[in-house]
């Protein structure tokens, strides 16, 4: 399994209803995107970090390992905003408002990424997928997603094993060997994916498979206190941001 999903399965909020966590985590993300980046970004990021490291109980090191990936993409993506192309200053010049735009973008993306991480670190994907049918997603699409989720992890494990075996047989020593090994790895994944699907199909056929994959969904009741607290937090963030913006900007 992947580290974020492992953390989600062991999360303190694991048994909370996914809708509660979606309202809070994705609400924080939407708030970060919709509010002005300054002072909205730092406020939303601080509130999300406080929830992540406090009540949600996510370990700081785990959070940093997951967060540094989107952060790296954000920094790389913000760099082009520092430069302007064409115009009187020459073919490439420093954009007059470039640093401000880049900083605003970084604030917005960092805060928004933390909101998604709050949801991902507390809600296993296996809890979300079966509930999507009630949200209007066609059942066959959800079934395919469930199979993808289950087989995906097995395939990732199998790919890691094959990669280790290739390395042990000097399959990564030169560029040509590396290409051969990669192609072999991708082809092996294809063959194993289809083989697993065929075996799953035989197993399910023996149990009277009628086209619907029924899975047990862990029961969870909505906590109105949690929902109210989440709505209050989001409302407070919006109010404080707009007030501060009106006062100082």
């Amino acid at each position: 399994m992947l580290p974020i999903d492992v953390a989600a399965h062991g999360s303190r909020w694991r048994h909370r209803h996914p809708l509660e966590k979606a309202l809070l985590g994705l609400g924080l993300t939407v708030t970060a995107v919709a509010l002005p980046p300054w002072p909205g970004g730092p406020l939303v990021a601080a509130a999300t970090l406080a929830v992540l490291l406090g009540p949600a109980g996510v370990a700081g090191r785990q959070l940093w390992r997951a967060f540094r990936i989107p952060l790296g993409f954000c920094v790389t993506g913000a760099l082009p905003l520092l430069f302007a192309v064409g115009g009187p200053a020459g073919p490439v010049s420093l954009a007059p408002d470039g640093p401000r735009h880049a900083a605003e973008l970084l604030l917005r993306t960092s805060a928004a990424s933390l909101g998604v991480l709050l949801f991902a670190f507390t809600t296993p994907v296996s809890d979300v997928l079966p509930r999507l049918v009630r949200a209007g997603v066609p059942a066959p699409v959800v079934d395919v997603a469930l199979v993808m989720y289950r087989i995906g992890f097995l395939l990732l494990d199998s790919v890691a094993q094959v990669r280790r075996a290739q390395a042990a047989r000097l399959g990564h020593t030169g560029r040509a060997a590396l290409w051969r090994s990669l192609a072999g790895l991708a082809a092996t994944s294809f063959v194993r994916a289809f083989d697993r699907a065929a075996r799953l199909q035989e197993g399910l056929a023996g149990r009277g498979y009628d086209g619907a994959l029924r899975v047990l969904v862990p029961g969870a009741t909505l906590s109105w206190r949690f929902l109210a607290a989440s709505a209050a937090l989001l409302g407070a963030l919006v109010t404080v941001t707009l007030t501060l913006e009106g006062l100082y900007l």
């Binding site: 087989i151 994944s189 699907a197």
Partner: peptide, 16 residues
């Protein structure tokens, strides 16, 4: 109905 598993395997392959 058996396509569910084949399509799921195809999606997992794309993910990998």
């Amino acid at each position: 109905p058996e396509s569910t598993l084949l399509l799921g395997a195809s999606g997992a392959f794309t993910f990998v």
